[in-house]
Design a protein around this nucleic acid. Structure first.
Length: 217
DNA sequence: GGCCAGGTCAAAG
DNA sequence: CTTTGACATGGC
């Protein structure tokens, strides 16, 4: 099946997903780190705490005591390492760009990518999420759901990030709006019917292939 | 109580 | 270069 058809099937089944929830690019960047291997509901609590503590600008977070950040993001888990990482990112941004990230995000995608992936705690998925959802660059974001769903549906055989990403990007327009929606739809698909142990293929928009290949991967 | 969640890093093999 | 363990909370 072609990526474009997959997109249309998911879009028809689920409709617009309105990603990424967030009031500012910095909030999206912080959220991208906090959501690593963590349920979004927990991240929402952490973000709300950060807002209440007025910590959601690079300069304010950079100046805040680590313990204060740690306390605020506690619900999102891994708070010891995540608090250090988001604070380091805030310090970097505050130092080089201040609180207005327009210039930072407006760079060519390639330059922005190299800058973002140099941050500790930012791997391939978080990097691409920042590029797509904070900067609006046309990148296909791969996550665990995407790999699992794409494998089960027989779209891809490889599991490496780059391999899956290339499969999708190679035959899709470089359109940020489309890629934004596509990744969000894959996460929805993952939550609804590609659970690790008990997939619910009966409600899956890609039902047929999912039934064929069956279980975890 | 066990499994899972919008992963990443450092240390081994 | 690929695999493994640690990191932590909250909902079902």
């Amino acid at each position: 099946m072609r990526p474009k058809l997959v997109f249309e099937m998911l879009r028809a089944a689920y409709g617009p997903q309105h990603w990424w929830p967030g009031d500012s690019p910095f909030e999206v960047i912080v959220g991208a780190v906090l959501t690593q291997n963590t349920a979004w509901a927990n991240v929402e609590k952490a973000i709300a705490n950060l807002k209440k503590a007025r910590l959601l600008t690079p300069s304010r977070m950079a100046k805040a005591p680590l313990a204060k950040i740690r306390r605020a993001i506690k619900p999102s888990g891994y708070y010891n390492q995540k608090s250090r990482r988001v604070k380091a990112i805030a310090s970097y941004l505050a130092k080089h760009y201040g609180d207005d990230l327009t210039g930072f995000l407006g760079q060519p995608a390639c330059a922005l990518k190299h800058e973002v992936e140099s941050w500790k705690g930012v791997g391939p998925e978080t990097r691409d999420s920042i590029l797509l959802y904070a900067a609006g660059k046309p990148v296909f974001v791969v996550d665990a759901y995407t790999v699992r769903a794409a494998n089960r549906a027989g779209l891809t055989k490889k599991r490496a990030y780059r391999d899956v990403q290339e499969f999708f990007e190679s035959s899709l327009p470089r359109n940020a709006r489309l890629l934004n929606e596509f990744h969000a739809l894959f996460v929805r698909l993952g939550r609804e019917c590609c659970a690790k142990k008990k997939p619910r293929c009966g409600e899956c928009p890609l039902r047929k292939p999912c039934l064929r290949t069956g279980l975890p991967r």
